[in-house]
């Protein structure tokens, strides 16, 4: 009898919850939410957050090397923002993790153990100053497309964090464009830096949006995130938006895209393109990408080296 009552109460809560998000209301951290919703958010936001933290590393490599004082300042500010975005997102994830009694330290451990994944693009090597520019221009461009898609997310704290993040991403994109523009209008060598970067990053950019459906990699979170009004568009719609915004810009600078089949099909109003090797997503998820281990190692070393600081300043038990 009690069990039945409980079930009914749960069902009622669920109905109310669905009604709330369908009415466009925001769910807050302390509100009741279905476990499935919480779990989906935790997965999405902790991965998003840790990706920002890991994403600071490839660009950080180029901070001291940036070729002018002004570029040094610009890229330093950008890396700072990436860390800042990680801070915002991890705070959101940490609040969601409360019922499981997990904290930031646990998220770091999850990262080190390989349980918490980070985005495919941040497993790649940033080999040249051209790559540093391209990350700002196109990787951030892709990130802007996927993040603006979630600005209306039903989970209030995530939506608010994204609003802050997207505002800063506009600066990032322009910072990337400025680097690319200088190279594109520069010497032959400089121009080539950009083409090489486009060639190296293109496939990663397509992978970034995730597979079109379950069948490419065996699972996809997109349906459930759409159901819960966390995002509105599918992976494929986002990828198409990326093509629509960026292909013409790349071509206008006189560069080519390493996909001879790429074209806009007027009839279906979609971009036709060479499918990337979806299997690579699984490789990166296992932390077996080109620089996965090196990046994790940097993070791990710094975490270990600073352990004494955290110990020394931890408040004494009350």
């Amino acid at each position: 009898m009690n069990v039945l009552l409980n079930d009914m109460a749960e069902q009622e809560k669920l109905n109310q919850f669905i009604a709330r998000i369908e009415a466009g209301e925001k769910i807050e951290a302390d509100d009741w939410m279905p476990e499935d919703y919480r779990g989906t958010l935790i997965k999405l936001i902790s991965m998003h957050g840790i990706s920002e933290i890991m994403g600071a590393l490839p660009e950080k490599e180029w901070v001291p090397k940036a070729p002018t004082l002004n570029r040094k300042l610009g890229i330093m500010a950008k890396v700072q923002d990436e860390m800042g975005h990680g801070q915002l997102l991890l705070r959101v994830a940490e609040d969601l993790l409360k019922p499981y009694n997990k904290k930031r330290d646990d998220l770091m451990q999850d990262l080190f153990k390989g349980d918490l994944k980070f985005h495919n693009v941040f497993h790649m090597e940033a080999k040249t100053w051209g790559d540093a520019g391209l990350i700002g221009w196109l990787v951030d461009g892709a990130a802007i497309i996927s993040q603006t898609n979630m600005l209306g997310a039903s989970y209030g704290p995530y939506a608010r964090a994204l609003l802050r993040i997207c505002a800063e991403e506009v600066f990032h994109a322009q910072h990337g464009e400025a680097i690319i523009m200088a190279l594109a209008e520069g010497t032959e060598e400089q121009r080539k830096l950009v083409q090489d970067s486009i060639n190296y990053w293109w496939e990663s950019l397509l992978l970034f949006f995730g597979p079109p459906s379950k069948k490419e990699v065996g699972s996809s979170k997109q349906d459930v995130t759409i159901k819960y009004r966390i995002r509105t568009s599918t992976n494929e719609e986002l990828r198409q938006a990326f093509f629509s915004k960026y292909v013409k810009r790349i071509l206008s600078l006189g560069y080519t895209i390493p996909d001879e089949t790429l074209r806009f099909d007027k009839e279906s109003e979609t971009w036709i393109y060479q499918q990337p090797d979806w299997g690579k997503l699984k490789v990166y998820a296992r932390n077996e990408g080109p620089l996965s281990q090196e990046r994790l190692s940097l993070r791990r070393i710094s975490y270990e080296n600073n352990k004494w600081v955290r110990e020394a300043l931890a408040p004494k038990v009350i």
Partner: peptide
Amino acid sequence: HFSLLAPNEDIAIMMAQENFMR
């Protein structure tokens, strides 16, 4: 603005502006 993590309030206040009001 937002929340942050710090071991005590003196460190928290020293982090606040640069984290959220840069």
